[in-house]
Design a protein around this nucleic acid. Structure first.
Lengths: 239, 239
DNA sequence: CTCTGTGAATGTATTCACAGCT
DNA sequence: AGCTGTGAATACATTCACAGAG
């Protein structure tokens, strides 16, 4: 019995919540590998990934049975299996559309390149930007998208345009065959079925924090006044 | 003293999944308000927010009964209620720790400022950065955190340091009373109870897209990755 | 008739707890 | 003994479907 067999029959549906955690396990495994740790238990992996052990075991069981009872998981092998499941056995070149503050930052951000997602193409519509380079990559015009995508073998598009331009950019990306899109514009974009879109709105994350800010105050539920902490005099209203 | 119904629901525990959607509804409501739309139905709100109508109604019902049967919701009023629930009736000044590519970008990114989260303080440990300004805000040293937080009335901290520095920075933030942290470093940080942490790992989002990339191929799914690959050997995609 | 608000039903995710392998 | 893998139990989230307000 081959390790990857369950996948061969097609409908290996691993729960979305589990998929979302695999990259975290992978990050931990890479870290363990770099410290020459050879085996890891579900408990230890759980601690490092910030979840509980049963969840780790269940999640990993969707990929197959790679653990050794009484021992744990082989770090290198598990890393291979997780990477394979995620489709990370090779790099995925990405394109960034929109080179404002956020787009430029993402282009310069080493975190993508370092982790299997080289930024290979950039597009914008601003004539002042087109033709220049950002992070060593030339900026093309949005109208040239088809050629650029084909030449650079782009599979994933990142949208970092203003909200108003996002839908048009997404439509063009889909039209030229991009099937995976990471959208940073604060708007919900729609696409045909078969295209995966993930939305990351940085301000949304802060707003959720704002909600929990008040609930987790240990003492009272009221607008806090806690010894040692003075929240400042923010009496700004409106907005 | 806030107007409203004090005794209505003592244990106001609104589900986490619903909280996570409130900012999206709010964004849509702001958009509707700007186009002078006065009322909106759950169906329309759902379309604009990219979810279904029953979910919108259920989510909003956790906040109270603000809709009018046969008509819909008053945009302005609903916006107020959602904002209030999220704690967005006033701005929350934020501090960013770590001014590498990502941190600098976030400091310059207008999206925070525009949406109620003014960037009021910056810290780093690099002597070349401390004392300079980024986006018009002076960069302080991490060691001055306590003073800076107190002076600027910081309630939320953003961690944009390298992974290795993140835990130390988080510990310091917690020590000086910051109770909400948005962590961009690719590592799971731990804190005492009562502190909210949200992790945003941009590469994780791309990795999840990579997973779905293959499943959604319309034609055949036999593409890439084949059974010939031997387990035990990790192909180098990271670091 | 339109549309909200919500119990009931269904679907997903997490956690428990233990059989079974090492 | 230690630890995985997994059914069963529980908790959580979504969707249905309809009573009732306007």
């Amino acid at each position: 019995m081959r390790a990857g067999d369950p996948g061969a029959d097609g409908y290996n549906s691993i729960p979305a919540a589990a998929v979302a955690r695999l990259p975290v396990y992978r990050r931990v495994l890479l870290e363990l590998l770099s410290t020459r740790t050879t085996t890891v238990s579900s408990t230890r992996l759980a601690t490092l990934a910030g979840v509980n052990a049963a969840k780790v075991r269940k999640d990993l069981s969707y990929l197959g049975s790679f653990g050794i009872r009484g021992v744990g998981y082989n770090v290198e092998h598990l890393l291979y299996e997780v990477s394979r499941e995620l489709g990370l056995t090779h790099d995925w070149p990405v394109l960034i559309a929109g080179l404002g503050n956020l787009g430029s930052a993402l282009a310069n951000y080493g975190g993508f390149q370092d982790r299997g997602f080289p930024v290979r193409a950039l597009v914008d519509t601003d004539p002042d930007k087109v033709g220049r380079q950002v992070a060593g990559v030339p900026v093309g015009h949005l109208d040239e998208l088809e050629r650029i995508v084909a030449e650079s073998g782009i599979a994933i598009g990142i949208v970092a345009t203003p909200a108003g331009a996002a839908q048009d950019v997404v439509d063009r990306m889909v039209a030229v065959g991009i099937g995976s899109i990471l959208n940073f514009a604060p708007v919900v974009v729609k696409t045909a079925d078969g295209v995966s879109v993930r939305n990351v709105d940085l301000a949304v994350e802060l707003q959720v924090l704002s909600f929990y800010q008040r609930r987790h105050v240990p003492g009272g539920l009221e607008d806090l006044l806690e010894p040692g902490l003075s929240p400042g005099r923010v009496s700004q209203t409106g907005r």
